[in-house]
Nucleic acid binder design. Sequence first.
DNA 1: TATGAATGAGCCTTCATTCAT
DNA 2: CATGAATGAAGGCTCATTCAT
Lengths: 221, 221, 221, 221
Amino acid sequence: MSNSKTEDVDVPPLADTSSFRAPPATARGARTRAALVAAARVVFERDGYLDARLTDITAEAKCSTGSFYTYFASKEEIFLAVIEAAQHDMLHPGFPRLDEDEASPAAVIRASNRAYLEAYKRNARLMLILEQVAVIDPKFREVRRARSRAFAERNARGIKRLQAQGLVDPELDPVVAALSLSGMVGRLAYNVFCLGDKATMKQMVDTTTRLWINGLKLKDE
Amino acid sequence: MSNSKTEDVDVPPLADTSSFRAPPATARGARTRAALVAAARVVFERDGYLDARLTDITAEAKCSTGSFYTYFASKEEIFLAVIEAAQHDMLHPGFPRLDEDEASPAAVIRASNRAYLEAYKRNARLMLILEQVAVIDPKFREVRRARSRAFAERNARGIKRLQAQGLVDPELDPVVAALSLSGMVGRLAYNVFCLGDKATMKQMVDTTTRLWINGLKLKDE
Amino acid sequence: MSNSKTEDVDVPPLADTSSFRAPPATARGARTRAALVAAARVVFERDGYLDARLTDITAEAKCSTGSFYTYFASKEEIFLAVIEAAQHDMLHPGFPRLDEDEASPAAVIRASNRAYLEAYKRNARLMLILEQVAVIDPKFREVRRARSRAFAERNARGIKRLQAQGLVDPELDPVVAALSLSGMVGRLAYNVFCLGDKATMKQMVDTTTRLWINGLKLKDE
Amino acid sequence: MSNSKTEDVDVPPLADTSSFRAPPATARGARTRAALVAAARVVFERDGYLDARLTDITAEAKCSTGSFYTYFASKEEIFLAVIEAAQHDMLHPGFPRLDEDEASPAAVIRASNRAYLEAYKRNARLMLILEQVAVIDPKFREVRRARSRAFAERNARGIKRLQAQGLVDPELDPVVAALSLSGMVGRLAYNVFCLGDKATMKQMVDTTTRLWINGLKLKDE
DNA sequence: TATGAATGAGCCTTCATTCAT
DNA sequence: CATGAATGAAGGCTCATTCAT
């Protein structure tokens, strides 16, 4: 699933990391930092970003408030670290690997949608918090938008290619279509996993895949 | 565009209004209340929900802090009033009025998408704030979800009907498809009008309409 | 029980009434005023003095806030009116009518204690509020103290007289004894009727009477 | 006066302390906390409970508002701490140690009354505030009532014992008598030390002791 | 590195009282 | 006399961040 082809997705750095605290120099330091990140994830998921207090995090990590600032400059920064730690799990093919040769485009789309939805499900609570932060803090809004735009652009290139091959509806604007279809899956995941709308995983994979394929008028040669 | 058929969308009451302050008994009171709501919209749009201070709102409305509490119990409550005041503008057919006889389903979908996108554009700033609040406050999350579910359900019924008429891909799960396609348009609007992704109105209408039609495999007889 | 003898107790005017609003001139006015006083008693007993809001009182009286100020200058003033309205009920012999000829001193003490305790019980909730106000507001503290001192002084004169007649322990300081014994009954009533200590009316009357008689070494000839 | 026999008075814990802030972990913290409690006593005695502002207390303690909340969650809570700090001083035998062998019951009663009155006098201002709080806040009402009931019960046991020994009027209900006589001394102290009634310490001790002894018909063999 | 006490700016909310209608 | 909208001062409380130990 994590072959090199999918790794090259243009994932922008999550944020300007230049002002970050130096990484821990000692083993004890590394342990404390890790405890803080784990504690932060617990607290963020439990209380949300706004209601999470730094003291809750340090209490959960069984360390002092002062220690927090040894490793992180702010709540924002530790949140970024939490997100980053969750990244490898969320790393998914990003876009239907339409350029793949070994599989039909349709199969790639299905696999990609499934991977995305499953990863989303695993991290649903954190995703909700990320939505929250994105909407509250323009900096994170930008982070989030850059990421989804990276995917959308990649998708747009894929669609363009398929259009060139005559496999996809030539009438579609590839950029806007990519934006729309990616957004569709993301929104559905959010509605079901975060807000509690009802749908099974199979229904979601089937339907989104079919809507992609139908929507693009993909010729499944 | 606003014929009676489209007015019957099942818009649930925005929230439990039982604990609300009594409505103004005099014309003067009504004027003050209206000034507060208008001022609140200005302030919310300018500063966002979290950074909006009650004193900013009363200052903008040229009244005292005390007057605020004559009409609203909290920031939350006046925000609801602002949203409510914006409702008539956001009221759109919701779903392609597939049951309409006078127009082809495709035309109905296009008109509906256009109406939604234009209304969203007019209220983009407020919609961003609503996203913010929805993500912060579970109460508003519920409000927002109830509304989108009402539309999705209506759309699902439309899709089911078209499937029965043999006009739409019978393989699709109508409920999940409705959820997905509605979400697609909503998300696109959010990305473009709120987050700054680039697309013209024409591109958005064309693409989403085509994705709907293609996605449903709608036979445009 | 309310013979003229007991009416002459030196009840000081409850407060300086010189700044009071003029009494209502019309029948409608009198009705409104009465409704306000009745409503105030309800609200004070329900919420206590501090938590009673003028708007609650006017709402209970089904009149406007403005009307309140037609009849009363302040919360304080209407509270005084409530207390005053409750006075006739609380009017009790005050002190064992030791000067009475028709009954033995012991019988007078018993009747007096019973009367006091029963009146207290009837107005327990209001008495609790009065304690509250007395302790909060020095003006009412003075009012309350003046009243109890009037009783104590009268009692002191009675004790002195009985000492002169050789019927009471001559070693006792009549003033302090009167203060002590009156306080004893008042405190017991407070403990039982307001704070919930357990005792039957009979126990209370029997015990306080016996403690008075024993305490004074009253010769029950 | 403070032999072990008198120390075992059943003083209930003042309140549910489970929600209290963690006690200071360092000497510096302990110093700040102590300064706050001392400052609070000054401010409460000067301004009363209701008019005491938290900022006055922190100003008096020369620390920031934030520090207050490091140690106390509310005005209520620091008041409890002030009362607690005053407790050791108010700790008195409670009831005439009638069970003592070395002294006559009468001597014990006198010593006990004197101890109580003197302690009350030393803390008169604080006692007035406590009355105020007790009457305002049901939680403190309960605290106060529990304490006085503990004493009254102890007194009741003493009276019962003396009745069994044939030294006290067998007609008296020991529980109600104890409640009455304890209340008598408490109320007298309140009247004189808090409300300004006039009596010397000697008069108070003499009279209350005599009223106890007479009241109980104590045989002073 | 670790600790945890100290900081303090700033906003929401209440409600007795006034006054124009 | 009645109405009810308008007023506005005042203070409790939070919590991210700093810094002395």
